[in-house]
Design a protein around this nucleic acid. Structure first.
Lengths: 245, 245
DNA sequence: CCAAAAGTGTTATGTCTACACCCATGA
DNA sequence: TCATGGGTGTAGACATAACACTTTTGG
């Protein structure tokens, strides 16, 4: 190992940054995919990304790529979740990619605006089921991103990134239900969130009910306590395989 | 962004893999550091690592580096936790490093055996306090590794990696207490661990008490349930800054 | 016998869950 | 007024924490 360390003779790699952009619309979790215009994997769907520049940090590269793809300046909530460097993952050369995850709301209009290449918000269930084929090892990257999201909404404030600046309890609850694939009791959900100050701040305004009527829901803003973990936790070790009870 | 994607003209990087090796001895959490023999940062402490080869995966590179440094074949429990690529983090060239974390027991003799360069098991408290200066951005990498360990022992079976093949309840409890910096009730700790099958398996043997006497403790082996999270959890949201109560 | 450490029992307190019930709105 | 969804109350199940107590060893 000491003799290996020769700076003049190291194997060169290309380093890229890929960004998994997630959003929720129509009650389902979706991922932003772009259609590739060149070989390899021409015409297939892929997650947006590009080369890291030597003068920027990895985080800066991710932020730049996100901006170039969507026009969104998401300085916060851009979290690195993995590195991928299997030989042959890019048929042309040795590429190591650093994968980032971010959550946007109202990405629909943005995605439609990037007309240089085709872009779409694909339900993650379709990706996981294999309905859409992804280029490179991007299927594995998206899979890891989903898993990360499932954890992050529990231990960080990621849940509020899915909803707008103001939201109802039902909006917020729908995020947890869609991502965890569970059904939560509306009453207990509300209690958990309102139990402590800092999670949500009532605005005094009301959302107007849907076409079927119903009591108008209170509108909240996200509080400051989400940085240290969310108020909602996954059911107490239910249905763990191998457990006794 | 479409025009950028020219394979013949990409910025080359060196890609390395660094391994943070942690262990517990004398009741304190320690990290394995090696002393650098060449410039830059000659004579300073650093975490072991080396170049990724184009023919191997990142995980394989980490496993190989670990083996070359310690002679240990740790096929499992080698988890990637971050990528670091700030410009200038290596003064000679553009280097992106992928950081891995592993936990070993009885690394003392191993570390002493690597006589090519100086190696030491340094208490992480010393590293965090800045008592030892680390090369490159390795201080930040170790900091991130500690934080990862604190989370992993709660949500995965990492705690058992710190103890031997057989261990007492006190051994296991000491791991949580040292890493979280808390004091746990021995009685309640025991109950939580034996509450469900799968965490620990009694061997029927006893550990012999210390010089001051005391009842000999039962010896256990680790069960199979640790893959899906440990039985011990951090106190219920105590001392969160900004909370109400 | 005494000190020390392991292990058990017990009880108070807190948290989670299910579900009954009331409130406010559109049609 | 009815249907629909929002919001509140509450009793039982369950989990946690604190600590007294018993057991088993070395001196």
């Amino acid at each position: 190992m000491p003799g290996d360390y020769d700076p003049s003779r190291f194997p060169p790699f290309a380093v890229t940054v890929d960004v998994v952009i997630m959003t929720m619309s129509e009650g389902v979790l979706r991922v932003l995919l772009v259609r590739r215009g060149e070989a390899p994997y021409k015409g297939m769907w892929a997650i947006p990304g590009g080369f890291k520049r030597p003068t920027e940090t990895l985080d800066e590269a991710a932020r730049r790529e996100l901006f170039e793809e969507t026009g969104v300046e998401a300085a916060s909530q851009l979290t690195q979740f993995g590195a991928y460097g299997d030989p042959g993952r890019d048929p042309r050369m040795n590429v190591v990619t650093i994968a980032y995850l971010t959550v946007l709301r109202d990405v629909g209009a943005i995605a439609a605006g990037t007309d240089a290449v085709d872009a779409a918000l694909v339900p993650v269930s379709d990706v996981l089921r294999g309905t859409v084929d992804l280029a490179f090892d991007h299927l594995g990257i998206v899979r890891d991103a989903i898993e990360r999201v499932r954890v992050e909404i529990e231990v960080s404030g990621l849940a509020t990134a899915f909803v707008g600046g103001t939201f109802t309890m039902a909006d917020l609850r729908a995020v947890y239900e869609a991502i965890w694939g569970v059904q939560l009791d509306a009453a207990n959900f509300r209690r958990s969130v309102v139990a402590e100050d800092g999670w949500v701040i009532p605005t005094g305004q009301r959302a107007r009910p849907g076409p079927a009527g119903g009591r108008p829901a209170e509108l909240y803003r996200a509080g400051h306590a989400w940085d240290h973990g969310g108020p909602i936790h996954r059911g107490p070790r239910t249905e763990r395989e191998g457990g006794k009870r």
